[in-house]
Nucleic acid binder design. Structure first.
Lengths: 223, 223
DNA sequence: GCTTCTATTTTTACATTGTCAAGATTGAAT
DNA sequence: ATTCAATCTTGACAATGTAAAAATAGAAGC
C-alpha cells in the first residue's frame, strides 16, 4: 500500500552501494573465483559504473579486505553455531570446531582464500582486525575449555601475547591442525577421498588431539 | 681459450629460454610477489619479447605451474637435507621436518603461495604431480619411521590411497600441523612473536606430536 | 653449398583491467 | 531557492594476457 522508496534506484545515489558491492563481491568470488576477481565485474553486478567502487573502498584491496572481514565474521558465526549444537562435551566441542572450520572452507573456498592472503589485504584495516580477533577468540576459548580454564571475552590479542606457555602450545596444536587440514583439503587435492572417510578421519584425529590436550592439562595441573 | 658458443645470445634463438624464464619467474616472485606476478615482466627480465613465453609455457598458468613444481622440488631437497642432519633420532627427525617446512615457507613465501593455489595451477601437469609426490613421499616416510614401519620408494599416491587407517591418521596429524603452522605463520601474522619463542614453541609442539604418534604406534602394535 | 623445413621469437592487434581526474547529479543544509 | 558536499559517471591512460601473422635462424636433406 505505502510507497517503498527504499528499494527505488534512481540512476544516481544507489542508496546502499557499499552493501551492494559487498554482495556483488561475494557473488563474484563464488561464481568465478579469486583468480578472476575484478573490481569492474563487481561494479557491473551492482549495476553501477566501473569507477563507482572507488569512493567506498578506495581500490580492489579495500573491497577484498572488506570481503575478508565478512568471511571471518561468517566463520565466527559458524563456529558458534556448531559449538552450541555440540553442547558441553569437550570431545564434541573440539570435533565441532574442526567440522565448522572445514565446512566453512569447503562452502566458501574463495572467501577462505582471500581471508588468508595477507598480500592482497590491508592488514591495518580495523574492521578486518576486529573480525579476525573475534574468530580467534572463539578458537582459543575452545582450547581454554579443553584445558579447564575460564573463557575470555575478547581481545587479548594477538595470540603471541598470551602469557601461558602451555596454553599457547595447545592453541598451536589445535589451530594448526584444524587450519592445515582445511587448507590442504582445499588446495592440495591430496587428501581427496570419499566424504565418509574424510569425515571419519578428521573426527578421529580431532578426538585424538582433544584427548592429548586434556590429558596433558590434567597431568600438568597436578604437578 | 676455446669459444663458448653456449652463452652467446644472438637476437633470435635464446638457447635456453625456458630455463631463463623460470629463473626470471623465480626472481619476479621474490622481488615483487605473486600479487604482482606478470608474464610480461618475466619476459622482460629474460630479455625477450612479451609473447615469447607462450611457446614454452602456453600462458601464465603454465609458467606458474612450472614454478610451483620447482618449489616442490626445492622443498623436497630441503626436507632431505634437514633429515640427513637430524640423524637417526626419531624425535629429531620429526622436529627437523617441521623446521625444514617452516624455513622453506619463510625463505620462499611467494613460491609457497603458488604451490598451494590450485586455482592458478594446472593440476594435471605431469611434472607438477611428480614434484608433489616426491615431497609427500618424503613427508610420509618420516611418519613411517616414527611408526616403526618400512619406508616406501615412491608413488603409492595420492595419500588417500593408503590402506592403513592408522598410518593415514598419523600422516594427517603430522602434516596438517606442519603445514598449518607454516601457512598461518605466513598469512595470518597472528603467530608473530620473537624468533626464539617461535622456534621453541614449534620445536616443543613437534616433539609432543612425535611422542604421541610413536606411543600410540607402540601400544597399537601390542594389541 | 644450397635449399627447404620447422622451431623459435618478434610484431602487431585487441579486449580487459585498475586507477585517476574531471564533470554530472542529487539530496540535504542553509 | 541556493549552496554544498557526497556520490556516481565519463573519459582517459598505461599495463596485462592472449592470439594471429610475420620474421629469423638453425637443422635436415640433397
Amino acid at each position: 500500500m505505502a510507497d517503498r522508496p527504499i528499494e527505488l534506484k534512481s540512476s544516481y545515489h544507489h542508496g546502499d552501494l557499499r552493501g551492494a558491492l559487498l554482495d556483488a563481491g561475494d557473488q563474484v568470488l563464488h561464481d568465478i573465483g579469486l583468480q578472476a576477481f575484478t573490481l569492474r565485474e563487481c561494479a557491473r553486478r551492482a549495476g553501477v559504473s566501473h569507477a563507482a567502487p572507488k569512493h567506498h573502498f578506495g581500490g580492489v584491496q579495500g573491497l577484498l579486505t572488506a570481503l575478508a572481514a565478512r568471511g571471518f565474521e561468517r566463520l565466527t558465526i559458524a563456529l558458534r553455531k556448531h559449538l552450541k549444537k555440540a553442547g558441553c562435551d569437550l570431545d564434541d566441542q573440539f570435533v565441532a570446531t574442526s567440522t565448522a572450520y572445514t565446512q566453512f572452507a569447503k562452502t566458501y573456498p574463495q572467501h577462505f582464500r582471500v581471508m588468508f592472503r595477507c598480500d592482497l589485504l590491508d592488514m591495518q584495516s580495523g574492521p578486518l582486525r576486529l573480525a579476525m580477533d573475534a574468530t580467534f577468540v572463539e578458537l582459543t576459548n575452545v582450547i581454554r575449555r579443553q584445558r579447564g580454564e575460564v573463557e575470555i571475552s575478547a581481545a587479548e590479542f594477538p595470540v603471541a601475547s598470551l602469557k601461558s606457555h602451555a596454553l599457547l602450545g595447545d592453541i598451536l596444536v589445535a589451530w594448526c591442525f584444524i587450519h592445515g587440514y582445511a587448507h590442504l583439503l582445499l588446495e592440495s587435492q591430496l587428501l581427496d577421498m570419499p566424504d565418509a572417510q574424510q569425515h571419519r578421519l578428521r573426527t578421529e584425529t580431532a578426538q585424538r588431539l582433544g584427548r592429548l590436550i586434556r590429558s596433558e592439562a590434567e597431568s600438568g595441573k597436578s604437578t
